[in-house]
Design a binder for these strands. Structure first.
Lengths: 226, 226
DNA sequence: ATGATAAAAATAAAGATATTATAAAGAGGC
DNA sequence: GCCTCTTTATAATATCTTTATTTTTATCAT
């Protein structure tokens, strides 16, 4: 899946320069030569935005604040203005990074890469140990602990727990869970989820009878209580 | 909720300097004077890590890679080494930012704040939370809150609220609502909408008897007051 | 204006339906 | 053969829909 990057700068040469180079890396690029164009393209949901500060009309700072009303992706400022005050202001208005002009392409690329990787980490929640109430779920070792006791879950059970735990407070239908755990190309009856959930609940309840970990949202699905 | 920040640097003066200043800001601080200490404290799950590169024993780059096996929080490098190559390497091994020594406390604080804010944005998934007067509607968790109280809505009720909330101040006929919530191919009597609206109103009114959330437009339909 | 009338909406409660929980038996893999 | 997974049947609930009745609202004639 290609990441979408929006470049906002009134200097066409620099934009072209960045665009070509980033396209070589396999990114999909959206270009805007002023703030209004940028806002118009926002609905396309870029994964990252590179923003010049000095632009005619609405400047980069204002644009950034505006963008933040709608989108939470990383925003990198690029600017020739380079006092500490400028850098701080960039971060204050909602930016995530600040690169001085002139910059090397290599540094730009690396920073973009680092930011996207972090977004990816976040969406993946690649933590390998997740604490959830009184449980600790080790997604690599396939182990669940209640305090020092190890709870024994089967493969499917664990996969279900893992999936839910990684997206706490979000309701998933039986079908969604089935698809996630069994794979998109599996065909089978997702009523088996009900049964697995029951087993999971029973095992947890044995150690922690008071808390609810997986709750049923009637007519919708199941949800991990975070 | 205080954020937990871990400082890793072998220069004790600098650590103390940062620690005092960050504690003033209300952060909770963990201190490590070398990489081993840092790793030992990792299970305490800091929300952000500030990392010096040049340290005796395992250096900052190696430590960063090690940390990344376990934890996905933002890592800020702080270093006197300041070539482009150094900065890039920091990002490559999994860092999220690079601050040159000597740095101003103000810039350090601002960057820390910006990173934590981003984490917060990500974990909050604020896009799925709609604020409407005194209610907060969480479309992923299928939950509605009045201040801190959770209101219990059934599936259909929730879907109706969700639909109306997403188009505030716009009147929809019973048929339109029915079509939206039940699906275009459903056939049934949309008088059931009346009943559901009643239920919704009753539940909200229990907590907020003064405001009107859903108003009736006689002969036309219902409307969410935005 | 006023009151009668008709239409729409609100209410209440019972009946019907659908979803989930439970239990137990059967199938499949190592 | 044992463990896990899946299926099936049944029970328990929560939810949805319908119906009947009352109330509200708008319209219109007087």
């Amino acid at each position: 899946m290609k990441s979408k990057i929006m470049l906002v700068d009134d200097e066409q040469d620099i934009v072209t320069f960045m665009k070509d180079s980033l396209e070589d890396e396999g990114y999909q690029i959206l270009v805007a030569y002023n703030s209004e164009e940028a806002l118009r393209q926002l609905p396309q949901q870029p994964d990252l935005i590179v923003l010049d500060i000095m632009m005619p009309g609405m400047d980069g700072y204002q644009l950034c604040e505006e963008i933040r009303q709608h989108v939470s992706c990383p925003i990198l400022f690029v600017s020739a203005r380079n006092t500490e005050h400028d850098r701080i202001k960039g971060l204050v208005v909602g930016g995530d990074d600040y690169i001085e002009k002139p910059f090397s392409l290599k540094e730009l690329k690396t920073r973009i890469f680092a930011h996207l990787r972090r977004e990816h980490r976040n969406s993946n929640k690649a933590y390998h140990r997740i604490h959830a109430k009184n449980l600790i779920i080790d997604t690599l070792a396939y182990e669940v602990f209640y305090q020092d006791k190890k709870l024994a879950f089967t493969y499917r059970e664990f996969e279900i727990i893992k999936f839910l735990v990684m997206h706490p407070n979000q309701v998933f239908s039986k079908e969604q869970i089935y698809e996630q755990v069994w794979g998109i190309d599996s065909f089978g009856d997702s009523t088996t989820i009900t049964e697995h959930i029951k087993k999971i609940r029973a095992k947890i309840q044995k150690y922690d009878p008071l808390s609810t970990y997986i709750s049923t949202v009637w007519g919708v699905g199941y949800k991990w209580e975070g």
